[in-house]
């Protein structure tokens, strides 16, 4: 087994353990930190797959943005120290069963499926190519979705402000 394979299995184990701890730990703040680790693990996985741009975006947006946002919201809702209420026994049982059976089914599907061989070309996710993909003036590029996502982000930002804004008292 090569070092690369060992690295992959370590990264995979790290991601999964951190993920499991995210959904099971009692304290919300710790869950956020485990999520952070899990996301860093995924970034590492992207590095391992030599998709550096995706890894960078993962770190910047997820680790630097979303997790920080989540931690802020934990502070804002004063949930950082308290133990979370434990899940309902019955629902945990049913959810667990459903999830495990669905996972097992999916894995058997994965293993039994014949994956066609890809082309022999080398995968080249360079930033230049990504730039062409997103904003080049060609029919294949994703210009329109790109613009739409930018509008979506703007709308989301305004929506957040409106929702979270303190309701003004009805003034005269």
């Amino acid at each position: 087994m090569s070092a690369s394979a060992i690295a992959f299995y370590c990264i995979a184990a790290f991601i999964l353990i951190a993920g499991i701890l995210t959904v099971t730990t009692k304290k919300l703040f710790r869950a956020a930190i485990w999520l952070l680790f899990s996301l860093i693990g995924i970034a590492a996985l992207f590095f391992w797959m030599e998709v550096e741009f995706a890894a960078a975006v993962q770190v910047i947006v997820y680790v630097g943005g979303i997790v920080v946002l989540i931690i802020f919201s934990i502070f804002l809702t004063n949930q950082e120290g308290v133990n979370m209420p434990s899940a309902l026994k019955k629902r945990s049982l049913f959810s667990g069963l459903a999830v495990v059976s669905a996972a097992a089914y999916t894995c058997t599907l994965l293993c039994s499926h014949y994956w066609m061989k890809g082309s022999e070309e080398v995968f080249d996710p360079s930033v230049k190519k990504i730039g062409y993909l997103l904003v080049a003036n060609t029919p294949e590029s994703f210009v329109l979705p790109f613009e739409l996502v930018s509008v979506l982000l703007l709308a989301a930002m305004i929506g957040c402000i409106v929702i979270a804004m303190k309701a003004q008292p009805e003034s005269k």
Partner: peptide, 9 residues
């Protein structure tokens, strides 16, 4: 969500 999940599955 659980019903949804089961139904989708």
């Amino acid at each position: 969500a659980l019903y949804f999940f089961l139904a989708a599955f």
